[in-house]
Design a binder for these strands. Sequence first.
RNA 1: GGAGAGAUAUCGAAGUGGUCAUAACGAGCCGCACUCGAAAUGCGGUCGUCAGGAAACUGGCGCAAGGGUUCGAAUCCCUUUCUCUCCGCCA
Length: 426
Amino acid sequence: MIDINLIRTEPEKVKAALLKKGYEADFSAPLEWDIERRKLISEVETLKARKNKVSAEIPTYKKEGKPVGVIFEEMREIGNEIAKIDERVADLEDKIFEFVACLPNLPDEDLVAGGKENNAVERVIGKKPEFDFTPKNHVDLCTSLGLIDYERGVKLSGGGFWMYRGMGARLEWALLNFFVSEHLADGYEFILPPHQLGYNCGFGAGQFPKFADEVYWLDVDADRKKNRFMLPTAETALVNVYSGEIIDESKLPIKMFAYTPCFRKEAGSYRSEERGMIRGHQFNKVEMVQYAHPDHSDEAFEELVNKASRLVEKLGLYHRVSKLAAGDCSASMARTTDIEVWIPSMGIFKEVSSVSNARDYQARRNNTRFRDAVTGKTRYVHTLNGSGLATSRIMPALVEQYQNADGSVTVPEVLRPFMGGIEVIK
RNA sequence: GGAGAGAUAUCGAAGUGGUCAUAACGAGCCGCACUCGAAAUGCGGUCGUCAGGAAACUGGCGCAAGGGUUCGAAUCCCUUUCUCUCCGCCA
């Protein structure tokens, strides 16, 4: 959430920043509400101060036997006046909140404006795999090797679901275990969060209200705020762990990761480019999150980008690192860097990790703060997140890049310890 | 799912309509004093938020959350959430 005070003091600057994301903002209404709100607050506080003063004197009057009927009458009137103004203030605050809550985050100043077309490749890692035979695509490979049972997945749950079997399940599990072991080695805390979350989590992460229709709701009550939804990414859980709390500054940065399945509606996104497990309603992901001190969140960001890239590199996969243009960053994020892995059959790079710095946008929404040791004041933390990694995108790249002429797939060396030493899947 | 009990600061806990909510009492933590140092002891301090202010500071709000009664609510009433105990259910 953007600070209303920032909108008040530098509306043009905020407007220009949002425009880089392609978002046109008009602050005239909320700024008027804000002026009225502050005027009313100072009025009503004067009344309240008087009421408090008189109320405190009443017991004394009573003890002295003085009449209090007239005072009660006056206090009742003041009370009515207070109630009226309070109601108006609450109303204005609701409107301001609603407006601000729907604004996307400000992009960092160094980002270029515009969408995807302005993303910039920062570096390419590894060697582009060349084949002296006609390589198969991942759907054919996974099917012929019996790694993924697409048909029976659809039979169980409908389109967009699949089932890992046998060596496929073991490969998937090995990937997850490899990621877990790497994050543990880097000192991150392992979290297994609930897979069902309350509305507040979606709001805190900045995904609601805008994307509330893109998750699966467990509808019990007509009021969505009382229902739970299946998490679309572990970020939604991890970023809310300390909501409403004041963290000890010495605890920062807090580094954690979680493995969860992710559930997304992905309505109407069936393209030939997304066959197989490129985009499904349920996929596995290990997610990294950091709660960082605002002065050090840039370092945390670099760390997460490097971690994600290194995981892909250790798997021996050809990939690249791209800095996203402002408009391609998701709404909650101030900056995002994507790790994209090469899918030979498609001839393109596909995102396997999105590393983002939300700065204080999420922390403001869910009220996550720390106490500054120097000033003693509370400040909002910076939250950062990145996939580390999503297996559903890694698996296609892996089987395709590691395929052999005979249709078998070599197991990357780092995964072998997690697969009982198996070297080739055939 | 049923019945009962509960939710007050960092923790324990008192307060059951006003003049003790920064909040008793106890502990913790931070200063200072005493000490060679520590312990013990003594003294002082120790919440968040909003509005105004350059600041010092002033004022408002906050007793799980939201409503209500009242001149006045932590206290009485209603709704919701969560925790504990007992009973039921338990793939």
